[in-house]
């Protein structure tokens, strides 16, 4: 093992179970996509529950959905879409070995993730003040309060699980930004940034479905 010499080429990063750097990159991406397939089913269970109850209690879902703030929800969609753009540029910078650019783009992605979480926090606070959080303080003056509460259970479960994913993503981006600053992803060793990007884009896709399904059930 030539551990004493500094890596001269990309092949220095090839773990011993792989033939070459291409195979290693392909394996990393494959592993991440398989994980994302399990995530599709993880969120899928909630989407299924949502679908069944929406068909069962259509009118209640229309009434309750109107209580959500479509401006905040829509803005958050835009925030995540732009964060995905920064993430895509981060992966590009990693491939081109642009260390400073990579660090800033990862920090920018994390920052937009924080903006998303802040807006989500404002929304949750509004829901709390308006007595829309399920539980003892839930108040509903329209028809069928029991199933109105059910909608908000689903809303908090789905957006909550998504928010956990965003939080994890922010943590990953901050760690990667630190590692990028230390030069860990230089000279072709960009696998980690690329698969973290896949995760971030996936979380974006989940929100792309949550926004219309939760905020725009009936027309306004």
């Amino acid at each position: 093992m030539s551990t004493l010499t500094s890596p001269a080429s990309e092949d220095a990063f090839v773990a011993q179970q792989f033939d070459n750097i291409e195979q290693q990159r392909e394996a990393a991406k494959l592993g991440m996509w398989i994980f994302l397939a399990t995530e599709v089913l993880f969120f899928g269970g909630l989407f299924l529950g949502y679908t069944v109850y929406r068909f069962t209690y259509g009118q209640v879902f229309v009434d309750t959905s109107r209580k959500l703030d479509v401006l905040l929800g829509g803005t958050n969609t835009a925030v995540l879409l732009v964060s995905s753009l920064l993430m895509a540029f981060a992966v590009r910078a990693a491939k081109l070995d642009q260390r400073r650019m990579l660090t800033w783009l990862l920090l920018g992605t994390a920052l937009l993730g924080c903006v998303f979480m802040s807006i989500k926090g404002v929304e949750y606070h509004k829901d709390y003040v308006d007595h829309l959080v399920p539980g003892r303080h839930f108040e509903w003056h329209g028809p069928d309060p029991y199933n109105a509460e059910l909608f908000f259970w689903i809303y908090f479960a789905m957006t909550g699980l998504h928010a956990i994913h965003v939080t994890v993503g922010i943590g990953v981006m901050l760690v990667l930004a630190l590692l990028a600053r230390l030069g860990k992803f230089s000279r072709g060793n960009h696998n980690t940034v690329e698969i973290a990007g896949l995760y971030w884009h996936f979380v974006d896709i989940v929100w792309v479905f949550l926004f219309p399904l939760l905020y725009l059930v009936g027309h306004r």
Partner: peptide
Amino acid sequence: RLLHLVAVAGVIWLLFLI
């Protein structure tokens, strides 16, 4: 092709579920 397969497989299983 392998990545295409995995990406589509996740969605197909979701469609089965639903």
